[in-house]
Amino acid sequence: MSFAYGAAPGDFRRSLPRFQQDALEHNLGLLRAVREIATTHDATPAQVALVWLHAQGPDVIPIPGTRRRERLEENLAALDLTLTVQEIRELSQLQPEGLRYPGMTWVQRETPSPT
């Protein structure tokens, strides 16, 4: 397993398929595209992601989590960010490589009968 994006030993992301070398290289390219859009708006990639999610329709409500006040303020500042229709379209075309989670074949699929 190879991981080149700075996760510490023991970080659970090391086991996720999207963070394995081939997929990781592709997905880091997607991150660069998001960062380019963020830079044009003097925003963060997280703010761009929140605005893109909000643009998906009234049935999609971003619920960002955070542990730090600065991130909460950053998330709230996304409300002041407006992306162009073209930027929304470009972001919508980005497709990550690799499964989100590893296979779950080890999970017991049948619920035992109550006794």
Rank of each mutant, 00 (worst) to 15 (best):
G57R: 02
P45N: 08
T115F: 11
P58K: 14
Q56K: 15
W106V: 05
L31S: 14
T39H: 06
N27I: 08
G103N: 12
L83I: 07
L24T: 07
L81D: 03
Q93Y: 07
E73P: 00
E36T: 14
T66D: 05
V51H: 00
L83T: 01
L91I: 08
E87L: 02
L31Y: 15
Q21N: 13
Y101F: 15
Q95K: 04
R67H: 11
L91F: 06
E74Q: 04
E90V: 03
L53W: 05
D80I: 03
H26P: 02
Y101L: 13
R35Y: 04
A33R: 15
N27C: 06
P102R: 10
L28T: 01
P9I: 01
E90F: 04
G6I: 08
L79A: 15
A33M: 03
E70S: 15
G103C: 09
F3V: 13
E73Y: 07
L53H: 05
E25Y: 13
T66H: 12
Q20C: 04
P58V: 10
G10I: 08
P17S: 11
E73S: 00
A43T: 03
E36K: 01
Q86Y: 02
P9H: 08
E25C: 06
P62N: 09
V60Q: 04
L76M: 06
D59V: 08
L16V: 04
I37T: 05
R69C: 00
A23L: 03
A77H: 02
Y5I: 14
R109V: 06
H26R: 12
P17K: 12
T115L: 07
H54C: 07
G29M: 08
S15G: 11
R13F: 11
S2L: 15
N75H: 08
F12T: 10
T105F: 08
L99Y: 09
A46M: 06
I61K: 10
P62F: 12
G103A: 15
F12G: 12
P112V: 04
E87Y: 03
P17H: 12
T44Y: 02
G57K: 01
E87K: 03
R35V: 13
E36G: 05
Q47D: 09
S113K: 14
F19A: 07
E36H: 06
P62D: 05
M104A: 12
T105W: 07
T105E: 13
F19G: 02
A43E: 06
R32L: 05
F19I: 00
G98H: 01
A55N: 07
F12A: 12
H26Q: 11
L99G: 10
A55W: 05
Q93F: 08
L91R: 02
V48F: 00
G65H: 02
T111H: 12
G10F: 10
T40P: 01
M1P: 13
E97R: 12
V51E: 01
Q21I: 09
P112I: 04
P112D: 07
R89G: 01
E74N: 09
A33G: 07
A77T: 06
V85M: 02
R32K: 15
R13P: 07
P58A: 15
Q86V: 00
V48D: 01
G10H: 14
F19Y: 15
S113E: 14
Y5A: 15
R89K: 09
H54F: 11
F3Y: 14
